[in-house]
Design a binder for these strands. Structure first.
Lengths: 122, 122
DNA sequence: CAGCATCGATTACGCGCGTAATCGTCAGCC
DNA sequence: GGCTGACGATTACGCGCGTAATCGATGCTG
């Protein structure tokens, strides 16, 4: 099941720290997003239905935690984009960013290091 | 206005060749997608409404062409993903792919070349 | 023990999307 | 010139999403 845009905001909060109560999550995300606490509750429930988060009773309330790792989610999303836009190959994506000047100096440095490593261990 | 998933399939066809008739586009995409020609017509009309394509009368019919460049679209989509998933930085994205072994030998070679260039001209 | 406050669950509603059938119009053929 | 067929335009409809109010259960408190 797919995690929608609004839902992913809630997931990010849970990935940062979990398990957490709904109130706690709402306190973190509602304000910045301009949501009410009710909206956050709805999102959490949809994520439960999608099995993307799990709930553990804690006395009166529930504490929520991700069932999907951020790694897995990021992998799926990234792969999807690369497949749809760049025919599944990563280099053209980077090339695209380099052409449009969207690579920071830090990016370039990190990429250099990365590529060096790649040259090494394979 | 955002281009949806199904709509982007139509756009890809138009980016490949344009201007083209609706029938022509449908001939290319309907089959593989399992769509009827009617569906393709609807998608074209939505893209017209969104100003993502333009139509020029050709006698009895219209010929359609993109108004949005594939470059611009790809840029927006890629930037969106990098912002949402990698805090706007490209290196972590590549790092992610390298960790999950999703870099082909060709990717690595191309990345090396790219990075070399980057080292050069800036 | 009865109310009240607090949570999660249920219900709501408009909008875009995926998918398509139907309608209306216009051009060409008999 | 009326009919038929080919187009584009309009309408349809269920589903997920964004956004939220309301309901119902449950535990605290006086």
């Amino acid at each position: 099941m797919r995690i929608s845009g609004a839902e992913s905001v809630v997931m990010e909060a849970l990935w940062k720290r979990s398990p957490r109560s709904a109130e706690d999550v709402a306190a973190e995300v509602a304000g910045p997003q301009g949501w009410t606490e009710a909206t956050v509750k709805t999102l959490i429930n949809r994520l439960l239905k999608k099995k993307a988060v799990e709930a553990a009773r804690d006395g009166r309330r529930y504490l929520y935690a991700p069932r999907v790792s951020r790694e897995a989610w990021v992998a799926a999303e990234s792969q999807g984009l690369v497949d749809r836009l760049f025919d599944g190959r990563v280099a053209p994506l980077v090339s695209h960013f380099s052409k449009t000047k969207k690579l920071s100096a830090q990016d370039v440095a990190e990429l250099k290091a990365l590529i060096a490593e790649l040259g090494d261990d394979r």
